[in-house]
Design a protein around this nucleic acid. Structure first.
Lengths: 121, 121
DNA sequence: AATGAAAATGACAATCATTTTCATTTCTGC
DNA sequence: GCAGAAATGAAAATGATTGTCATTTTCATT
């Protein structure tokens, strides 16, 4: 963990939800701190590899990042405004394990997302 | 509905699931028919507006299209050898819709994958 | 302090999907 | 057939993301 990653993390926290790489960059430079866009992308990538941030896609394909808690949950995401609801995934957990066992798979993990248009949009 | 849209639709059917704009274009031109990439994009856009096709995003952000109402399935993927099994997703479909409705979301879609280690690995 | 190797940084160029532009072609109803 | 509208496609523009590479920073060791 180094200075840039820390700065990006703090910015994501402060953004309180989603931010694209470019938005993170703006937020930081607007505060007078100087940092390159490339560095933001790299910081976000490594944070992603370490499972500290999640990546989603906006409708136009732009990647947006957010801090993810370490409990295993799923997301319900609004395609228009990006509003996100965290969801308990008990049903899926069981489904995933059942299906995997049925096909002889071990060490099972899964990913799942639901997306749609939220009531405000 | 015109010639291009029809051609794109047929290609999507034949592709049997997902295809990006570029893939649709390749599939068509490989058959010797001549069509511009721009036209593919426009056809896909209008089909999308008419709710005939759905759009999703691949991990790298590329847009992929599929016929609406296509039964869609999920994948069980081996992390080691890449072997893939297609799965019926009935349980998830219902779960996704229920959760979404509960939170007031409309026009709901979802993605889900299970990964693990297969019996041979 | 001085050194030096390895990692991090950032300006810039390259890439790649998608959109725009605009001149040309094809459809449409008459 | 004909005028006007819609569709087409080649090429340029756009915009996010990644690659490159020279420079800077970090940091453990002299």
């Amino acid at each position: 963990m180094n200075k840039s990653r820390t700065r990006v993390l703090k910015t994501l926290e402060h953004a309180g939800g989603f931010a694209s790489a470019q938005e993170v960059h703006q937020l930081i430079t607007r505060q007078g701190e100087r940092i390159g866009l490339t560095t933001i992308y790299r910081a976000l990538q490594s944070l992603q590899k370490e499972n500290i941030v999640d990546v989603l896609r906006r409708d136009d394909g732009e990647a947006i990042y957010r801090l993810c808690g370490d409990e295993h949950h799923h997301h319900l995401v609004c395609k228009k405004c990006g509003r996100t609801v965290e969801i308990e995934g008990g049903a899926i957990e069981k489904w995933a394990e059942a299906v995997a066992k049925e096909h002889g798979f071990r060490e099972v993990g899964h990913s799942a997302e639901i997306f749609g248009t939220c009531s405000k949009c």
